[in-house]
Design a protein around this nucleic acid. Structure first.
Lengths: 147, 147
DNA sequence: CTTCAATTCTTGAATATTCAATATTTTCAA
DNA sequence: TTGAAAATATTGAATATTCAAGAATTGAAG
């Protein structure tokens, strides 16, 4: 009898693929909503993180919004031009730059939040309350176990 | 009493964010393994889809490997240079191009499959059998419900 | 102190991706 | 049959991302 092998598993059964597919789909939907305000998903994330009113360093932000460092720098440049956020040099460690959200950024962030909530509610409807919270739980735990 | 609002939910609790985070992490791990053979994840997906030996059109492939059309064309160009795959004009519909995997591609695909299986097994160990299959089930059903 | 390594962020060049336009072939209605 | 619309893939220009190197500051060992 041949040894059971996973090597011919179709790609659609790999966890990595399912995650990529689900992520792509949900992200596309979110993108579509946020495009009403002409804002890419990453900028919404940035605004959301900064909307606690505290200063966040670039490194911290990059980690939080899942962008690598140079990409974040360039995206922040654009957002500074749009006066959504601003830079302040960290007085305690002058290597660091602290990012803050502007008033304009706060206003925009609120609008974006409500668009994002619309989406979450749409998912809750079509996918179900229970599945959603179970999926979230499993994802959190997967992320945990990967560190 | 204020109406309960989800608008201040931290970003880390959004499904879209959890999916992005998990996808990033698992993808990073897979990338790391496949880099032993110097192959990006997308190329492994392409080889895997083509390894059924049938011809697949570019549109079909693009859908299956989660790349948009022009990006796939350019990636296929590279893989043709590396003689991993080859193009054949579809005789039944000459607008289409059918992609096939070469012998060299098959050999490489096998090596890649086993690297990918290593990863899946690593996940099974650290994350657990039950969680993994439950997560896969939920992801499949999310993807379904999004179409 | 001083100097050397580490940390943090930015920059510029190389690469990759995307959008819009194009070329080719097929479909289908008139 | 013909001609217009749809489908398929590629191309080139515009845009975005990444990699490697650089500049500034801090930390820490000698």
């Amino acid at each position: 009898m041949a040894k059971p092998s996973k090597e011919n598993t179709p790609i659609t059964e790999h966890l990595a693929y399912l995650l990529a597919q689900a992520n792509r789909e949900i992200n596309r939907q979110l993108e579509l909503r946020l495009s009403k305000e002409g804002v890419p998903v990453e900028q919404w994330r940035i605004l959301k993180v900064l909307s606690d009113g505290n200063g966040h360093s670039m490194g911290e932000l990059a980690e939080a919004v899942l962008l690598n460092h140079p990409t974040l720098t360039k995206m922040i440049d654009r957002m500074v031009s749009d006066t959504l956020v601003y830079r302040v040099q960290d007085p305690n460690d002058r290597r660091k730059v602290l990012m803050f959200i502007s008033d304009r950024g706060k206003v925009l962030c609120k609008k974006l939040n409500s668009l994002a909530v619309d989406q979450e509610e749409h998912i809750l409807e079509s996918y179900g309350d229970k599945s959603t919270s179970e999926l979230k739980r499993l994802l959190e735990s997967l992320i945990d176990s990967s560190n």
